[in-house]
Design a protein around this nucleic acid. Sequence first.
DNA 1: CTTCTAAAAAATGAATGCAAAATAGCCGGC
DNA 2: GCCGGCTATTTTGCATTCATTTTTTAGAAG
Lengths: 234, 234
Amino acid sequence: MNEPFLDTIDEQGPAPAEAAKPAASLHEGLLVALRDFIVEGNLEDGARVPERALCERFNISRTPLREALKVLAAEGLIELLPNRGARVRELSSADVRELFDVMGGLEALAGRLACERISDVEFAEIERIHHEMYRFYLRRDMHGYFHCNQAIHQLIVAAAGNATLAATYASVAGRIRRVRYSANLAKDRDRLGEAMREHEAILDALRRRAGSELSDILFLHLRNKRKAAQASAG
Amino acid sequence: MNEPFLDTIDEQGPAPAEAAKPAASLHEGLLVALRDFIVEGNLEDGARVPERALCERFNISRTPLREALKVLAAEGLIELLPNRGARVRELSSADVRELFDVMGGLEALAGRLACERISDVEFAEIERIHHEMYRFYLRRDMHGYFHCNQAIHQLIVAAAGNATLAATYASVAGRIRRVRYSANLAKDRDRLGEAMREHEAILDALRRRAGSELSDILFLHLRNKRKAAQASAG
DNA sequence: CTTCTAAAAAATGAATGCAAAATAGCCGGC
DNA sequence: GCCGGCTATTTTGCATTCATTTTTTAGAAG
């Protein structure tokens, strides 16, 4: 009898810095593991979520698993059909549009708040990654570019100093993660340059602590991202 | 053996129009009932959530109740202490500040989106309620004023035509519902007049479909609401 | 061979049972 | 009289079990 799924939650390592979170409770750990399991695409879009198989996979009984499923359903990641179990929610183009807009609104808010409180150190870090991203851009290193892009947006949200916002943002970001991947990777050359210029404007507004302006830029930046995603994936 | 809790969910009637939602599933119904039960203040701030008592109250066993508790914990309404059950989450002043700002960001987004797609009919309805609110303002009818105020903000969110945004907004609004009540009812005369002027500006920007401008106004409007709340309740 | 029917199998939703942890109650010591 | 430790009760977390419902499968009729 191996440790329940604890060997699996380390397999995804986008958060190496916060290893000091050893799953406060069993339920919490399972929730994180199951969410990642689904977000990372281990289940097909629209596929039913196999309770029995997942119980074996995570070495737990159905009760905690079902609790986690209810939470994921509330988050919008899956949907619960009465007497017919859970299904991975497939995102219609309307859903994707909505999620991008909400994400844009949250980033706009993050930018506005960041302008109120960001420290010079925090700004310098964002600027540093921005320059790094520019180098990836010149080299057409999509993977590196994408990684920096993510980091910048994440740092702006962090600089807002609002845990509620960060949690909401994380939830929305998780729901469109797959779509965003394809959107960024499939991004054509023109959009890449355009995005780079938009990021210049973001940095400029943040440097001047121009909250309202940054808010607009960030929202429109996400709008353009959405259009690129819909053009490539739709 | 009476019907499980179905007799209780009708006791709170702020939604008389949407009676056509007969609890799609049992779990869903319990979730709504329990959320309202807590939001309406039947449990003290910081009090532990009594599983056994609630099971009797809603005529269900612990399993579905605990599922609902996990969801409410994920929403931030309660918190789960390992091996020590659920507690009604009490909001620190920092929490309230965060929630108001997120709410402001979501309303700013709603305003921006509403400008893109609101119909003349929808706008006319908002304008009508605005005038109604003005009459309540002149009469110093706080209850009527507050009701109209809520309705206007709700209609702007609805006019945004984004179900994801509406759901997120509802969640945040639910969490600060008690605080908002006190904030609005305790509002002093100066703030009342100020809020009225802000609402004039909101309507004006919406009429001109000035999304970016409306976005700023709405965010600042919520900021001022927050300040009034903190001044009266803090 | 297809299709309808019905029984078997599996899955779902919820209740109950059980071990571990926490809380309350009680007693003795200081 | 107050504090600290020990036991009894309650509570929590999870596994298991049970009743329904759904899905699959087997078979018979056309």
